[in-house]
Amino acid sequence: MYSDQPLLPDALKQAHAAAWQTIARPGDHFTGAERVAFLQAARDSMDCDLCLERKTSLSPTAVAGEHTHDTALSSTVVDVIHRLRSDPGRLTRRWFDSVIRHISPAAYVEIVSVVCSGVIIDTLHNALGNGIPALPPSQSGTPSPRPNPNTVDGGAWVPMLAAERDMADTGLPRVPNIARSLGLVPAALDLFFATFRPHYALRDLPLSITQSQAEFVAARVSALNECFY
């Protein structure tokens, strides 16, 4: 990855390559082939007629139909991935409740982690003019659930990582809610933040732009994606 991008930090390149390999391996609830198919489904969503029609409607629930995809994933899983990739700002609690009638919250968390890690990697490739990278070849093996008993109801839709609420000098808790969000599945939490971490820091940003410039970019992305957090 990024062989022609000398301006990218080596740690970031290594993290993305490692994420690709991690995704290709069996997870807690899905095989390596299924996890790689999540990445493909996320890419398919960008040309999905249903997603495009929903995106331009006043409410995504106003348009019914089938997603365009070329995977063996269930319709529920494909809907989660397409909505997450193409229209994340209009996900709602009632939609989430309808999803977990078909898949467990832990399976949902695993999907979110894989897809969002892939979004970071695909976005950066496209943004640098590289085109999206080839998907990793999946590795064989069976999923092995390793649930985290150390979770709490923290007011999110899913159980969150239990953590002390003491404050850091950034004005945020030492472990902010975003870092607890995928805690139901430790491997999912690890995958996402291993991918994310080389991109950003609350303090001592390891990049050439200032912290304020980075915060403006971050806030602008949040606004474009209609993210409340």
Partner: peptide
């Protein structure tokens, strides 16, 4: 580096939106 930050937040905003964290 600006694009490095933008791509990261294109992912993490989706984690927040998908999990409904307060």
């Amino acid at each position: 580096d600006a694009l490095v930050v933008a791509s990261a937040f294109n992912g993490i905003t989706r984690v927040a939106d998908a999990t409904g964290i307060p």
